[in-house]
Write a protein that binds this DNA or RNA. Structure first.
Lengths: 103, 103
DNA sequence: TGCAGTGTTGGCTAATTTGCCAACAAACAT
DNA sequence: ATGTTTGTTGGCAAATTAGCCAACACTGCA
């Protein structure tokens, strides 16, 4: 993997490296949602949520479709579950290491 | 997943969301390496590489062990391969989508 | 038509990140 | 002891990111 290839991959990872965007992905994992429903999960300004969704869309992690007045968001990243599981395994390992240091 | 949990996971993801750090992880995937060898892969100042390694260490993705004069780095994230494969699948899908739009 | 509701965009500030240089600490060699 | 090599830390400037507000475009309804 050269730098340019790493750069492209890093951009996709970066899109997931934010708590709000990670939660959005988690919400979309099992079902499509419209903007209003996603926005309602958070207490941020709707423009903030809209921009986070744009980041996810630009990375190819979600897609959007305008239907009448509202916009439906759909997950495109089929390996979300594996991705989250992988991160959780690192997290679990970190916690275990912390525990063992206390003894 | 609440915000706090997402924050913790996002911090781990963020550690991987940089081309240099992604390349380091790729290098360490199959073998331990000392600092000098890792540093040699890049054209950055050694302090820059050292700081990237610190970020990976703080996230629990790699560990380090001082042996005599030099420092050995070791990967702790056992799911690196799956992680990279997952990102690659998103990348591949993006490229396919671009292709189809050209026609 | 005009008005209310829905989501995006522009612009701004504050906070974070990145990379370099210089200085430092630790191990080793002379 | 002195100097050299190896890696980390502090501090700085430039670049990027996050969030808010205001303004806008688009749809649907009266």
């Amino acid at each position: 993997m050269n730098y340019e290839q790493a750069q492209i991959r890093a951009d996709i990872i970066k899109a997931l490296a934010h708590p709000v965007r990670l939660m959005i992905v988690q919400e979309l994992k099992d079902k499509d949602m419209n903007f209003a429903d996603i926005n309602q999960v958070f207490e941020y300004d709707k423009s903030t949520i809209s921009k986070h969704l744009t980041v996810l869309k630009n990375a190819g992690i979600v897609s959007s479709k305008k239907i009448g007045a509202d916009v439906i968001y759909h997950i495109e990243m089929c390996c979300v579950n594996k991705f989250i599981d992988c991160i959780d395994s690192v997290l679990k390992q970190n916690i275990e290491k912390q525990q063992s240091c206390l003894m």
